[in-house]
Simulated assay, not measured.
Amino acid sequence: MAVSLQKGQKISLEKEAGGVLSRVKMGLGWDVASSGKAGGFLGGLFGGGGGNDSIDLDASCIMFDTNKRPIDAIWFGQLQSKDGSIQHTGDNRTGAGDGDDEVINVDLSRIPANVQSLVFTVNSFTGQTFEKVANAFCRIINANNNSEVARYNLSAQGNHTALILAKVYRHNGEWKMHAIGETASGRTFHDLMPAIVPHA
């Protein structure tokens, strides 16, 4: 059973998965708070077609080296890391269907040795604040068997336009996850960098 993370908690991904994790997916999901229509697991993200309920949240992953310098970023403007180890499945603007709203695939075995951490963020590209967002979460899935390893449910609502969700990082030769859950403001990850770097 997946571990449910609290803000600030750190876990060993391999310990929770019960073995070596080579490929993982970071799944991100959210609902629109005002629509009142859940529509399945996460289908209510953009409500029932009303224009006012539309909110385009974007997931990003920033790769940092041991000196906390950004090396690469995976987002809707660049769906794959330059080394090919991380791939974004694409921008979800409709929220249709069940499951994760956006997914970032990570091949841990292919992450370059100089990469120390991966920081995952989500931001409101359309500029609406998270007062309109409910039930936000991020989760790590073992891509080899599609089992959920860890889930972090965020109390995301508030007058901000972005969240620094979590960090996956190397520690003593294994991959760990740190639930961050810090609010920030910005339409893309570029705007968030001053807030992200202290967590890298």
Rank of each mutant, 00 (worst) to 15 (best):
R93P: 02
V103G: 01
S60M: 07
F130P: 02
V168A: 01
V115D: 01
H88D: 09
A150R: 04
F46G: 10
V119E: 06
G173F: 05
N114Q: 14
F125M: 04
N105F: 10
F64G: 00
L154R: 05
L165H: 11
I164H: 07
S85F: 10
N92M: 05
I111W: 04
F76N: 11
Q116W: 11
A136D: 01
I141L: 00
S109P: 04
P70Q: 12
D100R: 00
Q157R: 15
G97E: 14
Y152F: 15
D58F: 03
L79I: 14
Q78R: 13
T121D: 07
L163K: 14
T161A: 09
V115A: 02
L154M: 12
N172T: 10
D56H: 11
Q78F: 01
G90W: 14
R110C: 10
N146M: 14
N105K: 13
D100S: 08
A73E: 08
G127Y: 04
S155A: 14
A162C: 00
E131N: 15
N145M: 05
K68I: 02
H178K: 13
D56K: 01
V149K: 00
L108N: 03
I104D: 03
I104V: 13
T94Y: 14
G90M: 10
S60P: 04
G97K: 12
M63L: 15
G47I: 03
V106Y: 02
N153I: 05
A179R: 08
L57E: 08
T66I: 09
V168K: 01
I180T: 06
A136L: 11
I141S: 00
V122A: 07
F46W: 09
V133C: 03
T129M: 03
R93N: 07
N135A: 09
N142Y: 03
F130A: 03
I141Q: 00
N105P: 05
S81H: 10
P112W: 11
G127I: 04
W175Y: 15
A134F: 06
T89K: 12
V106S: 01
A166H: 08
P70N: 11
E102N: 05
W175R: 01
I141W: 00
G49Y: 11
K132R: 12
T129K: 00
S124W: 04
F137I: 04
G95H: 14
Q157L: 06
S117E: 10
L79W: 07
R93D: 05
V103I: 15
I55S: 03
K176I: 05
A113V: 08
E174S: 12
I164L: 08
N123K: 06
R69G: 09
D100V: 05
D65G: 06
I86S: 07
D100A: 03
F120R: 02
F137V: 07
K82V: 08
I104E: 05
N52R: 11
S147Y: 12
G84Q: 10
E148S: 12
S124P: 02
T121E: 08
N114D: 14
R110H: 13
N114T: 09
N159P: 04
T129C: 00
G50W: 09
S155H: 15
